[in-house]
Write a protein that binds this DNA or RNA. Structure first.
Ligand SMILES: [Mn+2]
Ligand SMILES: [Mn+2]
Ligand SMILES: [Zn+2]
Ligand SMILES: [Zn+2]
Lengths: 141, 141
DNA sequence: CTCCTTTTTGATAACGAATATCAATATAGT
DNA sequence: ACTATATTGATATTCGTTATCAAAAAGGAG
């Protein structure tokens, strides 16, 4: 079974790009994280293992991870976050507008009707972004 | 029946803010637009009628329009756009990732299941953002 | 109207995330 | 070893948006 490093290598090879130590390290660090990770968090942990890595390389590599399907980029608030995508079940997000708490959920029927809506307008659905904003139980008190 | 200017005046009064000529003009211009309008477009048309209005005032006023429920802010791509909200039926968006064409749609069942998902996690739904990305018929050829 | 307080304005500086630039370095293949 | 190409890190730059601040405007009270 292919793991994330194989996927990444394949993607890089496909575009004549190289599997460098920096890219490997960034992927390693990213895979150790869970949930929605900010680029600064990744930066700190990467520099922990190799202080010479520049921020530009980090941005460039995160972009490659997204393009290769290993990461998903979120822009819920101002700061973008990254989330593991490969072998992680698709889900949408429910965010508390008071405390920023996030709940991950998936509704099969919503996914189904999204496809339906697309077909009605002769679109081929490629991806979607659905985020619900509300107030969690604790913040309602 | 209240129109947008009344709504705006009420909102301003509520927070001890003033209904100034600049704010009136910006609202006037905004209401003449339709669809998803970029701030530069509004700026051009505003300066056309009053060249002394500064960009800061425009940003500040657009924020007030959003807060008063008259406008909705979208961040589909890099540039944020504004769309009339009052007396305009709620809808979600379907965007072609090739040509940026936008289709507006609404699916009652999706809205229903969004509420359902919220209730399951004890959230009070306040708003949602759903955008489908696909390839339109023309761009598939 | 005059005086006083608060709000608003416009010019411009500042911000910050992300990208572009570019010379030095690393890599892969011959 | 040699060559061509890709990559890197430091840094400058971009660009939408926000903060700053002195001057102007607005709203009341008398
Ligand atoms: Mn998630
Ligand atoms: Mn719309
Ligand atoms: Zn909360
Ligand atoms: Zn298209």
């Amino acid at each position: 079974m292919l793991d994330e490093h194989d996927i990444f290598k394949d993607y890089l090879k496909q575009y004549n790009l190289r599997y460098t130590p920096q890219r490997k390290l960034i992927l390693d660090v990213f895979l150790q994280q869970s949930g929605h990770v900010h680029i600064d968090d990744i930066h700190i942990r990467v520099r922990d293992q190799d202080p010479t890595i520049g921020i530009a390389t980090l941005y460039r590599t995160m972009k490659l991870l997204v393009e290769s399907g290993l990461a998903e980029m979120h822009t819920f608030n101002e700061k973008t976050t990254y989330e593991r995508l490969f072998q992680v079940r698709h889900h949408d997000h429910l965010i508390c507008i008071v405390c920023d708490k996030t709940v991950e959920f998936e509704h099969p029927l919503i996914e189904k009707y999204q496809l339906e809506a697309c077909e009605r307008y002769d679109f081929t659905l490629k991806s979607h972004r659905m985020t619900l904003f509300g107030i969690c139980k604790e913040c309602q008190k």
